[in-house]
Amino acid sequence: MKETGNILFSGVGGQGILLASEVTAYSLLGAGYDVKKSEVHGMAQRGGSVTAQLRFGKKVYSPLIEPGCADILMAFEMMEASRYAEYLHKDTKVIVNTQKILPPAVATGQMAYPDDVLANLRELGITVVEVDAFEIAKQVGEPKTANVVMVGAMSAFLPVDPKNYIQVIETRVKEQFRDVNLKAFEAGRNASK
């Protein structure tokens, strides 16, 4: 068992990042790890840049990831993969939803969307796993499950049996959304293999 692991979630308010970090946290808990999770919400719900930090290990003190110490970055939006670059190191796995959500300055035509963010990360030697989570979620039948598609994609990189995630989804997701979320998890897991 690795001593500690750090997962940084980044994206846009409303994408279901908190739920994704919640499912991940409970799955790690089920696998026997101590887990701490921290996030700041409020205004962030309203389309702003959002992060959640998750740390796991035998014993976790600080709820905050140190700069340069994120082992996995879960970027729910393409540009948000590079906003928190100071948290990454060269062995960080960046799992990125390639969906673009235009921030106000881009939507109003004042700035261009930076199209080179993933290439720049790869130039630093960082592993980038691209997942078209929004498209996969649509195919599964519910666009809102893009967050669980992302959890599925990440699950391939964590020391947790897939059964743990499935159990968490089964116990924590409302019955009417359970099947579609399980499908989303599987589809995400297959997408990053």
Binding site: M43, G47, P67, Y84, A85, P104, A105, P114
Partner: peptide, 18 residues
Amino acid sequence: TKELFAAPKLPNRPPNMC
């Protein structure tokens, strides 16, 4: 101290009314 990657200059993403 340790060397960190610098974040590129990106368009800000402030919260917005729905």
